[in-house]
């Protein structure tokens, strides 16, 4: 991953500012999603996973069927969102946070993909065909992973240069 990102020239000026803006916005989104779930004692990923369709549906559904697995997944999801959100905003371990965020979003996408013929009881706030906001956020996080900004603007600048 690091090798790949090194091949790309570091962004500067307006490019850097916009990439940092993108990083902070996605971080904000992750952090709030995590905190909302943390604050709601009744929140669980069960309903979302139980509705899963597509090739990974079996795995997601087996999580719902196992109370311990569900508890672990819910815990990791909440704290993963919060940790990734904080890391993206602060620019702390930026590349790792971007990859981790992309991975998490990819899981959401794969759990309920907007493919033709798949319908879900939970209404989406827009209309999607294959591409939805999860997929776009996933791609945006990959951009951030390959154009790392945290060593330029972020806590990583202090850590890795000290």
């Amino acid at each position: 991953m690091v090798e790949a990102s090194k091949k790309l020239s570091a962004p500067s000026g307006m490019q850097l500012s916009l990439l940092v803006l993108l990083r902070v916005l996605i971080g904000w989104h992750f952090l709030y999603e995590g905190l909302v779930k943390l604050a709601n004692p009744y929140w669980t990923s069960a309903a979302y996973l139980a509705e899963s369709q597509g090739i990974f549906a079996g795995i997601f559904k087996s999580i719902v069927a196992n109370p311990l697995a569900l508890q672990i997944v819910d815990f990791l999801n909440i704290w993963g969102l919060i940790a990734i959100g904080l890391a993206l905003i602060l620019g702390f371990l930026g590349t790792i946070a971007s990859f981790a965020g992309a991975f998490l979003i990819l899981l959401y996408y794969l759990a309920n993909p907007p493919f033709i013929g798949f319908t879900y009881s939970m209404p989406s706030e827009g209309s999607y065909l294959i591409v939805n906001k999860n997929l776009i956020e996933f791609a945006a996080l990959l951009v951030l992973a390959f154009y790392p900004t945290s060593k330029l603007v972020g806590v990583d600048r202090l850590i890795f240069k000290a």
């Binding site: 940092v20 709030y32 904080l86 905003i89 602060l90 620019g91 603007v153 972020g154 806590v155 202090l158």
Partner: peptide, 14 residues
């Protein structure tokens, strides 16, 4: 220091 902590105020706003 400024560049390293540039985004910290965002957390305050959040």
């Amino acid at each position: 220091l400024l560049k390293g902590l540039a985004t910290v105020p965002v957390l305050g706003v959040f």
